[in-house]
């Protein structure tokens, strides 16, 4: 249990949304304008990075530094990706993957957050369950696919289960961490209002834990997509991005389509990440304030 905590902390530090690396030392005016400017600069750097990467990719492919049938040029792939976005059957596959991932993710949240609150609040329950959790946690969800296929089949239940199994532990641990990091004086203050422990949990402990829960969400959302595609790959699902990629890769010249599909999946991941960042800005900005 102890060893997992620093990891959680580092994660929340290194991918904290508001203070970009290299600027934490200087005290930045926390006015809206400055924040917006800062954001534009960060976004511009991101775009520049992507352009450099695409240029490198193009050069590597055009000058045949890697064989053509392994890596098509960036320009070809991007055009292909754009075409795929107009392809109904492809969109259907993406939709199927997203739906399964969402289902599994909601399941993971529905288990991890309430359980994390309870375990975070009760040291006794925490101690009683810690060993079991540590025992189950390292099991690789994708490794469980054969077993899950036998139990629930190759459909959406299997995919959702893999996603839930992979996401539930980081979410649980981050929720517990958030509950534990609630300030003792803050809790004492709330109790001095004459509030019961339950009221303190809802009005103080939960809001204090939200930033840590969102860090867990940030860590797990993209993992959820990856797990879902992986489950489709290995579990032999009939639909979804994973099975689509598998089919395309077996067609002659299919590598172009596969690359384009991967680019679309990457863009999807980016979108989801953006949504999480927006959530963090809205609900966890106070945790990234610069007052100390």
């Amino acid at each position: 249990m102890e060893s997992s905590r620093p990891a959680v902390l580092t994660a929340s530090k290194s991918i904290g949304p508001i203070s970009p690396p290299g600027e934490t030392g200087s005290r930045i005016e926390s006015t809206r304008g400055a924040r917006a400017n800062e954001r534009t600069v960060v976004a511009a750097r991101g775009v520049a990075g992507v352009l450099c990467f695409l240029a490198l990719w193009e050069v590597v492919a055009r000058y045949d530094l890697l064989p053509r049938d392994v890596l098509p040029p960036a320009s070809t792939t991007l055009v292909h990706a754009a075409q795929l976005l107009g392809d109904r059957s492809f969109l259907g596959q993406i939709g199927s993957t997203l739906w399964a991932a969402l289902l599994g993710y909601v399941l993971a949240l529905a288990i991890a957050v309430p359980a994390g609150l309870v375990l975070g609040l009760s040291d006794r329950l925490h101690a009683a369950t810690a060993t079991v959790v540590e025992l189950i946690r390292p099991l690789p969800p994708v490794g469980l696919v054969p077993l899950l296929v036998l139990v629930v089949g190759q459909g959406i239940e299997m995919k959702a289960a893999v996603v839930a199994l992979g996401c539930v532990w980081p979410l649980l641990i981050n929720t517990i961490h958030g509950v534990h990091s609630t300030d003792g004086t803050a809790k004492a203050t709330a109790r001095s209002f004459g509030w019961s422990r339950g009221t303190v949990a809802i009005r103080v402990v939960w809001p204090s834990a939200v930033p840590s829960v969102l860090t867990g969400v940030r860590i797990t959302v993209s993992v959820a997509l990856i797990l879902c595609v992986g489950a489709e790959f290995i579990g032999g699902s009939r639909d979804g991005l994973g099975s689509w990629l598998l089919q395309q890769s077996m067609l002659p010249g299919g590598i172009d389509t596969v690359c384009a599909g991967v680019v679309v999946a990457g863009a999807l991941g980016l979108l989801v990440n953006g949504a999480v960042t927006a959530l963090e800005r809205r609900f966890a900005a106070w945790a990234h304030r610069e007052d100390s």
């Binding site: 300030d183 003792g184 004086t185 803050a186 004492a188 203050t189 109790r191 001095s192 209002f193 004459g194 103080v204 809001p207 204090s208 939200v210 106070w286 945790a287 304030r289 007052d291």
Partner: peptide, 19 residues
């Protein structure tokens, strides 16, 4: 905790809820 009582802590930073 009785009614009619309020407490002010030394650590105001931690005693005010930042959210």
């Amino acid at each position: 905790v009785p009614k009619g009582l309020a407490m002010v802590f030394q650590d105001y930073r931690a005693s005010l809820f930042p959210w």
